[in-house]
Amino acid sequence: MTIATYSVHPTPIGEALLVTTEAGLVALSVLDGPAYAEVARLSMLLHAVPTPDDGPSADVTVELDEYFAGTRQVFTVPLDWRLTAGFTRRALEAIVEIPYGETASYAEIAVAAGSARAHRAVGTACARTPWSIVLPAHRVIRSDGSLGEYGGRPEHKRFLLDLEERAVGSTGRA
């Protein structure tokens, strides 16, 4: 039986819903509506109703705050992959490998995931990732260098890429 808890944490791009299980972070969504609606959606997927977390998931919130402060480049919180499978999972596993401050095209991720012609499926995987921010789908761009979508919020994608670019620039890393 799955036991899940949730909390809401403020970020510069909006309130983030964090859902954890005994295996790790199962979902992180930047909310564009009430938290209860996203909790209800995740309840159906998890076959369990997440309960409010008395103290927000400390590791996740600390790492998120460090990321937005420009001091964290790699998330170390364990991810619970139960909501992903097949090509979507392979694409998301490839996206995790994109270094901080860098980007890769949808086509490059398709190749890395083992299906060179599946660039549109990579876009779908990015749109459906259970982990916004922590899994860096914002680092996946179009082959022509344009940003593409980010859950209908390209301004969030631009914000995250700019944040990483500034942080890399301030450390002198190439």
Score class of each variant (00 low, 15 high):
Ala48Gln: 14
Glu155Arg: 12
Met1Ala: 14
Val111Phe: 02
Glu15Leu: 03
Ser115Glu: 11
Tyr100Gln: 06
Val19Asp: 13
Leu160Arg: 10
Gly145Ile: 01
Leu31Tyr: 11
Tyr6His: 14
Thr103Glu: 08
Ala127Leu: 10
Ala23Gln: 14
Glu66Arg: 15
Ser105Arg: 08
Tyr150Val: 01
Ser115Lys: 15
Met44Trp: 15
Val19Ala: 09
Pro12Asp: 02
Thr51Gly: 13
Trp131Asp: 00
Asp65Pro: 10
Gly152Ala: 04
Gln73Met: 14
Met1Asp: 12
Pro12Tyr: 06
Val96Ile: 13
Pro136Lys: 01
Pro12Met: 05
Val122Leu: 01
Asp80Gly: 04
Phe68Asp: 07
Ala16Leu: 05
Leu25Asp: 01
Ala37Val: 12
Glu38Thr: 15
Arg89Gly: 02
Arg117Asp: 11
Leu83Gly: 01
Arg117Gln: 12
His47Asn: 13
Asp65Asn: 05
Val96Gln: 14
Pro99Ile: 00
His47Cys: 10
Ile133Met: 05
Glu15Val: 08
Ile141Thr: 10
Trp131Ile: 06
Leu17Ser: 04
Arg158Tyr: 00
Thr5Met: 12
Pro50Val: 11
Arg173Phe: 00
Arg82Ser: 06
Phe87Ala: 03
Asp162Glu: 14
Ser132Pro: 03
Ala127Lys: 15
Val49Tyr: 09
Thr103Ser: 10
Val134Leu: 01
Ala112Met: 03
Ile141Asn: 03
Ala16Glu: 07
Leu45Ile: 04
Ala110Thr: 03
Val74Tyr: 11
Leu79Lys: 00
Arg117Gly: 13
Gly169Glu: 13
Ala104His: 01
Ser43Leu: 10
Asp80Ser: 01
Met44Pro: 00
Thr171Ile: 06
Pro12Thr: 02
Leu25Ile: 01
Tyr6Asp: 07
Val39Glu: 00
Leu64Asp: 03
Arg89Gln: 11
Ala104Asn: 06
Glu165Arg: 13
Tyr150Trp: 13
Val74Phe: 12
Ile109Glu: 00
Asp53Lys: 13
Ala37Phe: 02
Ala27His: 14
Tyr100Trp: 07
Ile95Thr: 02
Arg72Phe: 02
Gly101Cys: 00
Gly151Tyr: 10
Ala4Tyr: 00
Glu102Arg: 15
Tyr150Ser: 00
Ser105Cys: 05
Phe75Gly: 03
Lys157Leu: 06
Val30Ile: 13
Pro99Val: 08
Trp131His: 01
Ala37Thr: 11
Ile95Lys: 05
Asp162Gln: 14
Val77Leu: 11
Ala167Gln: 08
Arg41Ser: 04
Ser105Ala: 04
Tyr67Phe: 15
Thr20Gln: 12
Tyr150Pro: 03
Leu25Arg: 03
Val74Ser: 13
Ala35Phe: 02
Phe75Cys: 03
Leu42Ala: 05
Gly123Asn: 02
Ser105Trp: 07
Gly24Pro: 08
Ser115Gln: 15
Ser105Phe: 04
Arg173Ser: 10
Ala58Gly: 09
Leu161Trp: 07
